[in-house]
């Protein structure tokens, strides 16, 4: 295991309650706190643990996004990534376009393992890892809750609807991570200082020569339908009555 590439997306922080713009043109992002996608943070933590377990692999954090995404990459460096790369673009990319860009980086960097979150909490698409694996013609192991590296193989436990599935993949492979894989470390102040000296390269998306993205047209963005206001009951017997009235028991 020589190199692990971790893909990181800058997203609206998970504590922010996102609101739709009155003109339905999108969601309000002005002045909103931005963070590393929580799943990608778990991916990075896993890469660091693999490194610290003695493989001493180089951990490269890659992101695609606006110039300010450097903030999230600095966080990644502070957590312990060795090097960061921002593929800069002002264009929001959908997962297929992101996968093409990540493929171009993977071909250059030749990582043994690509780790990323199973989904980003903004578009909730759950596609990028699978698409990258397809384009790269490599194995995919999605929804990982356990990852064991053994030479040129990885054994991955996956959270699936039925329970836990285990598969074995040859490296290099793309692994997308689920919440229970690990708990990411907190960044300490000295690490933030150290991170300032670590290399963070910025390249333009155009310089990668990836195909221009085909995408969907976003017609409008609306708030979800609201549920009708409910009733409060005083005690369990009132609750049972209410359920009976609704024909639920």
């Amino acid at each position: 295991m020589q190199k692990i590439m971790v893909c990181i997306k800058r997203v609206v922080d998970y504590n922010v309650r996102v609101r739709v713009k009155p003109d339905e043109s999108g969601v309000m992002l002005e002045g909103v706190k931005m963070s590393v996608n929580p799943f990608d943070e778990i991916a990075l933590e896993e890469a660091l643990r693999i490194k610290e377990r003695g493989t001493n692999a180089e951990v490269l954090a890659v992101s695609i996004g606006v110039a300010d995404t450097q903030q999230q990459l600095r966080t990644a460096l502070a957590m312990g990534a060795d090097r960061a790369l921002l593929v800069q673009t002002d264009q929001p990319l959908d997962p297929l376009a992101a996968a093409h860009a990540l493929l171009a980086i993977a071909k250059k960097e030749n990582p043994d393992l690509v780790l990323l979150g199973k989904q980003a909490i903004d578009d909730d698409a759950n596609q990028t890892g699978q698409m990258l694996a397809a384009l790269w013609n490599r194995p995919q192991a999605t929804y990982a809750s356990k990852l064991a590296i053994d030479g040129t193989k990885a054994t991955v436990t996956r959270e699936v609807d039925a329970g836990l599935e285990t598969i074995e993949v040859d490296l290099p492979a793309v692994v997308t991570v689920d919440l229970r894989l690990n708990e990411p470390r907190y960044v300490k102040l000295p690490d933030i200082m150290k991170a300032k000296k670590k290399p963070l390269d910025v390249i333009a998306l155009d310089s990668l020569g990836v195909p221009s993205p085909v995408s969907f047209k976003i017609v409008k963005t609306e708030p979800p339908a609201q549920r009708q206001k409910g009733i409060m009951v005083k005690d369990v017997s009132e609750l049972v009555d209410a359920l009976k009235k609704k024909g639920l028991i």
Binding site: V18, R19, V20, V27, I121, D124, T221, E222, P223, P224
Partner: peptide, 8 residues
């Protein structure tokens, strides 16, 4: 999108 906070 956004955990169901918006519908596109």
């Amino acid at each position: 999108i956004y955990a169901g906070n918006a519908i596109v």
